[in-house]
């Protein structure tokens, strides 16, 4: 099966980042499954390591019309960065950013324990937003956790962000494809919340 739509970039390299426990790996799997179903060549590289112990975590979703890519996006070559935590968006930009990169980030900070301990400072949110905008061609600064909390569970922020990504024009797919991929991974009882999270995420870009 050959994919129908042309990709935004070839390869389309989307880095999903965040903090352990935010559902980063799940988001990358949903995206990977949906794209694979449309016939694209998909590679999802996951770096979790000690992620469940409060560390940063990163997945790389690499999409091509044909063939297979390596698991690592080359340095400074990400097409887009989808971040579940704003500081992590900036951290990833340093290694994978370039003037044309698109950034979508949840605006809810998760304090590193070294910041909580007072050893380091978390940047001012306005500074962080300005810097992300400066280092990207497009920044979507999104209240994904707020939306998720409105839906009843902060863990849905990852699905809200996927909904936003689908509405950004970067993906060759829409909400139904993501929903179908989610349905493969969640019991039907959980799908209503996921559907709403996708829709609310997409609406953030409307």
């Amino acid at each position: 099966m050959n994919p129908a739509a042309k990709l935004y970039a070839e390869p389309l390299d989307i880095i999903i980042t965040g903090v352990g426990g935010q559902g980063n790996v799940l988001a990358s799997q949903v995206l990977g499954r949906a794209l694979l179903k449309l016939g694209y060549g998909v590679t999802v590289g996951e770096t979790f390591g000690l992620s469940q112990r409060g560390g940063a975590v990163m997945s790389m979703v690499r999409v091509v019309s044909q063939g297979v890519m390596g698991p690592l996006v080359p340095e400074n070559r990400a097409t887009a960065i989808l971040s579940l935590e704003p500081l992590e968006a900036l951290r990833v930009l340093g290694a994978y950013g370039h003037p044309q990169v698109v950034v979508l980030t949840n605006d809810r900070p998760l304090m590193p324990v070294n910041v909580i301990a007072g050893a380091n400072r978390y940047p001012d949110m306005a500074d962080l937003q300005a810097v992300l905008a400066e280092l990207s061609s497009r920044l979507y600064w999104l209240p994904a956790t707020d939306v998720a909390l409105e839906l009843g569970n902060p863990i849905l922020a990852n699905v809200v962000m996927l909904g936003a990504l689908a509405a950004s024009g970067l993906l060759p797919l829409g909400l139904p494809e993501l929903e179908a991929a989610l349905a493969e991974m969640f019991p039907p009882a959980k799908m209503e919340a996921n559907r709403q999270a996708l829709a609310r995420g997409a609406a953030l870009l409307a």
Binding site: V19, R53, L90, R91, P112, N114, N120, L135
Partner: peptide, 17 residues
Amino acid sequence: SAELLAKLVPPREFGFC
């Protein structure tokens, strides 16, 4: 970007849950 990262981004230390 290196300059801004050095200025703004603290490490994210591993820690017990």
